[in-house]
Simulated scan of single mutants.
Amino acid sequence: MKTQYYTASTLDGFIATEEHSLDWLLQFGEAPGGSYDRFIAEVGAIAMGSHTYEWLLRHQVRPEGREPQPWPYAQPAWVFSTRELPGVDGADIRFACGDVARLHAEMARAAGGKNLWIVGGGELAAQFHDAGLLDEIIVTVAPVTLGRGAPLFPRALTTPPALRLESVQAYGDVFAELRYAVKRG
C-alpha cells in the first residue's frame, strides 16, 4: 500500500487558480492515453481537502444548470476541513479535521491493501509528507502558466527526505507525467 499524491499542475507549479478554478486544465479535455484508469484501479481510499471537495460538488455532483451526477468515487473518502460541509447521499464520505497521522491507519485499513490517494490539495499532501506518510508524488504537467494560485506543494522539499524520479511519460503533445518516490530518513 502506498500513500500517493496524484494531481495535475501548471508548468509553474499551481494546481488551481486563486479562485480554485481548474479551467486551465479542463480546456484540454481528456489526456490522450493518460494513466488515470490504471491509477484509480489501484486506489482503495481517498483523502481530499475541502476546496477539492467543494469543487467536485459544484462542477460534477451538483452542477448549476446541468443534470446532477453521482459521486465519482466508489472508494471511501476522507474530506479534511475545519468547516461543516454538506454530504452526498449514497457516498462513503467521512469528514475529518486535524492531524492526518491520527487517521492514516484508519484510511489504510479501509483501503484494504490498495493505495491511498491524496486527491488535493497541496497543503493536505504536504501534511502527509510532514508526518512521514507520503510515498509517491505523481504529477501531470500541462503547458500552462498561471503566475499565482494554489501551489502544487506549498513548502520546500530541498532537504531530506528528497524525491527520486521514477518515471517520465509523455501523453500526446501536451502532458508530461512525472512520478517521484519520496525517500525516507
Rank of each mutant, 00 (worst) to 15 (best):
D89S: 15
G90V: 14
A91T: 12
R94K: 07
R94V: 12
G98D: 01
G98S: 00
D99Y: 12
A101Y: 00
A101Q: 00
R102T: 15
R102K: 14
L103P: 09
L103M: 10
L103Y: 13
E106S: 06
M107P: 08
A108G: 11
R109T: 13
R109P: 11
R109W: 09
A111W: 12
G112C: 05
G113D: 06
G113K: 02
W117L: 11
V119R: 05
G120M: 03
E123M: 13
A125S: 13
A125M: 14
A125P: 13
A125C: 11
A126Q: 02
A126L: 10
F128G: 06
H129I: 07
D130C: 02
D130E: 14
G132W: 07
L133M: 07
L133H: 00
L134K: 09
I137G: 05
I137Y: 04
I137M: 14
I138E: 13
I138V: 15
V139L: 06
V141S: 03
V141C: 01
V141K: 03
V141P: 06
A142E: 05
A142S: 09
A142V: 08
P143Y: 07
T145A: 15
L146F: 00
L146T: 02
G147F: 10
G147T: 04
G149C: 06
G149S: 04
P151L: 01
P151Y: 02
L152F: 14
L152E: 07
